[in-house]
Every structure is written in structure tokens, then in C-alpha cells.
């Protein structure tokens, strides 16, 4: 029995030793690894719309528990190279982003974005500009579509020839053109992005409608989207309502990195407040820092209403 006594003493000693101030405190703060701020770049260049379809933002990362506000980095050197030859140097435009003058970009060429910050080091990322895929035909039919969500609307079809033997990624978007009377009373035309929802089951509804050629590689493919009938009329504060007079279908060829970055950003944002959602690893493609650089090129096909 002597052994039993010792054992009981040992057990109760454990209990007493454990009885500290926070004995039943079941929540403890944990240390995260120290975060070293990195250069963060988000850059998108559309070779078709070099004047307004391109933007490069430069900032830096903050540790997840850091309460400081984000600040744009305005003194970075931002340069675009075409096949390792300097193409353009981008300058910071106050309260917006870095802009640069690029006259032309060529399909199939490699473009490298280099960003150098005096404080946060430098990064670079390379993308190959995809080949422009032309829209072969596009149609509009009123009240002919029922989208994936069961909503009826007008149908737009887009037909194109997918280049064979390579994985291709697309964005399909639709804009409406309307007449806009400017203050100097002259008439100008303006474009208005129309909300398009998927009819084609292959379309992924991210911030726009995305498509991969996994199931139609090298084929002629026709995709279908729905637009809201009410959106054929544009309302703006400074003008009275104007009817849309034509529709332009845009088929944008994007890089794989473009597709993956948008897919993960959308997944992240869609589930930011869902505690049961699986975590999302944002797709990044820059070396030496964080963020993404992506290229695209667009073909347009107008349809008169």
C-alpha cells in the first residue's frame, strides 16, 4: 500500500502545481512569425487599350496584425521590358497609379515588369502576351436567354476559333454604346459596361465571365451570355436617359496568371466573412515580393441593335 500512497501524492502534486492564476484560462494569445514587409505590386496591362486599360499599383505588405494604414509607394522605378529591352518607364500619377506610354505591344512577345523601391527592394515578373483571338461572329436576340440563375434576358452569342495545342483563357464582356450630349452640345459616343451573366455552363462568374478551353481546345466555340434588358437604357446624372444604340462584344485573351489571380481573388472576397470556407491562397507571380503582373489583349465585335 505504500506504493499507492506515493502515487496518490504524485497525482495530487501535479494538480497543485498546475493551479496557477490562469488555471482555467483556455484562451491564450499566440505569436506569429515576424513579418518582413515586402514590395507588393498589382499590375494589369491590356495591349488593346494601352491608354486606359493598364494600371500598375505599387505598395508594400503589412503584417496581418499591423494596424498601420497602407501607403502607396510613389518613388519606385517602374519599367516595362520587351524581350529584355526597355520599352517604357512608368511614372506615378497622383492619387491613381503608375502610368506609362507604350505605343504597341506584340503578341507572343515576353514582357517583364521591373519595380525597384529604395525602401522595399525590387521585384520582377514576366508574362507572354497572348495571341489575339478574333470574334468570328456575335449575335443579339431579345428575351432569348435564361441564365444559370434562372433569370430571363437578352442573349448574346460569341463565336471564335480557339488556337489548338495550348491552354487558352478568355474573358467575355459586353458594352453598350450610347449617344452622350456633352456640355459643348456636340454629340459624342460613350461605352457602358453591361452586366452579363452566364448561360454557357463553362463560363466562370468571377468579377467578369471567364472561360478556359479545357473542353474545346482547337475547336470553333460559341459561348452564350445573358444581359439585362433594362440595361439597354443608360441613365446619367448630367443627361437624360439614352437608349443604347449598339452593343460591342469583347473577347479578351488573358494569361494563365491573369486567370488564376482573378480566380483566387474572387474566391477570397466571396468568402471573406464565412468562417467555414476553406482558406484561399492568392495566386502570385512576382519574384522578390508579392502580387501579380498580368497581360491581356482584346478583340471587339460590334452588333447594331
Amino acid at each position: 500500500m505504500q506504493n499507492i500512497k506515493y502515487l496518490i501524492y504524485i497525482v495530487f502534486s501535479f494538480l497543485l502545481i498546475s493551479c496557477g492564476e490562469d488555471f482555467f484560462d483556455s484562451i491564450t494569445e499566440i505569436e506569429l512569425p515576424e513579418h518582413e514587409p515586402q514590395l507588393a505590386v498589382r499590375g494589369t496591362i491590356n495591349a488593346t487599350y494601352l491608354d486606359y486599360g493598364s494600371w500598375i499599383r505599387v505598395g508594400h505588405t503589412l503584417g496581418i496584425l499591423d494596424t498601420n494604414k497602407f501607403e502607396e509607394i510613389k518613388d519606385a522605378t517602374v519599367q516595362l521590358y520587351e524581350e529584355n529591352v526597355l520599352k517604357s518607364t512608368y511614372e506615378y500619377a497622383e492619387n491613381t497609379w503608375y502610368v506609362g506610354e507604350v505605343a504597341e505591344m506584340k503578341e507572343g512577345k515576353n514582357y517583364t515588369l521591373k519595380v525597384d523601391s529604395p525602401t522595399y527592394g525590387s521585384i520582377e515578373a514576366t508574362q507572354q502576351l497572348p495571341k489575339k483571338v478574333s470574334v468570328m461572329a456575335a449575335t443579339y436576340e431579345a428575351n432569348a436567354a435564361v441564365d444559370r440563375y434562372g433569370e430571363r434576358g437578352d442573349e448574346i452569342t460569341v463565336q471564335f476559333q480557339d488556337p489548338a495545342g495550348e491552354k487558352n483563357y478568355y474573358i467575355i464582356s459586353v458594352t453598350g454604346t450610347y449617344r452622350f450630349e456633352s456640355p459643348d452640345t456636340s454629340f459624342v459616343w460613350d461605352n457602358y459596361g453591361l452586366y452579363a451573366s452566364p448561360v454557357d455552363p463553362l463560363l466562370e462568374h468571377l468579377n467578369q465571365l471567364y472561360l478556359t478551353d479545357s473542353s474545346f481546345d482547337g475547336d470553333t466555340y460559341t459561348s452564350r451570355v445573358r444581359i439585362e434588358p433594362m440595361e439597354k437604357i443608360v441613365y446619367r446624372e448630367e443627361i437624360e436617359s439614352q437608349p443604347i444604340e449598339s452593343i460591342t462584344v469583347r473577347l479578351t485573351s488573358i494569361t494563365k496568371d491573369y486567370y488564376l489571380s482573378q480566380k483566387t481573388i474572387s474566391a477570397f472576397r466571396d468568402n471573406d466573412d464565412n468562417p467555414f470556407a476553406e482558406p484561399v491562397v492568392l495566386h502570385e507571380n512576382v519574384e522578390g515580393g508579392t502580387g501579380f503582373f498580368r497581360l491581356s489583349i482584346t478583340d471587339e465585335f460590334p452588333i447594331d441593335l
Binding site: L32, A40, G59, L62, I64, F268, P279
Partner: peptide, 20 residues
């Protein structure tokens, strides 16, 4: 998986999945 850093106004980076 924990968010380790953030950039821009809403994006959070986690490095690699299950890295913590």
C-alpha cells in the same frame, strides 16, 4: 492556415497552405 500579411485594402496573403 493563417493569414500572415495583407496588401492593398483587403487582400490577405497566407504564404503556403498549412504553413503555420
Amino acid at each position: 492556415t493563417l493569414p500572415l500579411y495583407r496588401y492593398e485594402y483587403d487582400l490577405e496573403g497566407i504564404g503556403d497552405k498549412n504553413s503555420f
